[in-house]
Amino acid sequence: MNFNDALSVTKLLLEYVPATLKLFFFTLLFSIPLGMVVMWLKKCRFKPVSWLTKLYILVMRGTPLILQIVVVHYAIPMIVSNAKNSGNESDFIDWLRELMLSENYMFITLIVAFSLNYAAYFAEIFRGGLESIPVGQYEAAQMLGMTKPQTFFRIILPQVFKRVIPAVSNEVMTLVKDTSLATTIAYAEIMLIAKQQMNTYSSIVPLFIAGLFYFIMNAIVTLVFMLLEKHYSYYR
């Protein structure tokens, strides 16, 4: 593989950066709020809810993400065809069929699988952050007559935010790399195209170029989190 080939592969891969970034940003957009909800459900005093949430987290963290992607992707066609075979028609099945046939189906299943998986990790990170706040902070706020929402939003949450930054940055960097798992269901992003180019040129150079792309994206993520940590370094 000569330099010009490498250059054209680089250009081609560059065209698929937005596809990778789309996966990345949409997953963050859904998994972070969902992670807060999951944490909140796990701390729920109504035990069955807390147990179900624990089971959810166990399954999500306990099985491979690649497997979850495949399951989500193929579950819907199977449900639809089963319903058809047993003559079970309903609005819901119709809705699923339409979803299945839409051009965004692949992207949607990926976002669902990624978000469900990452929410489980974020939930545990947020819980760790929340539980690391000394009980004295709650007591001080209580003694000052602050209400529970005031205590949470004005005193606790800002401190949790600072404390979870390092753990969240880990997770976000992993996500950059995990977007390559989309290859499993043939979603066209950097990794899939790199593998195709590897076959076309019978060379592993396209893989190195793809690796460089992920590396640069994570260098940027590292920089963003470094700045974020610096922004919050005014207190301990």
Partner: peptide
């Protein structure tokens, strides 16, 4: 109430 370990809001 003044606490033994102050419990000031660090942020």
């Amino acid at each position: 109430l003044v606490f033994q370990n102050f419990n000031l809001f660090p942020h």
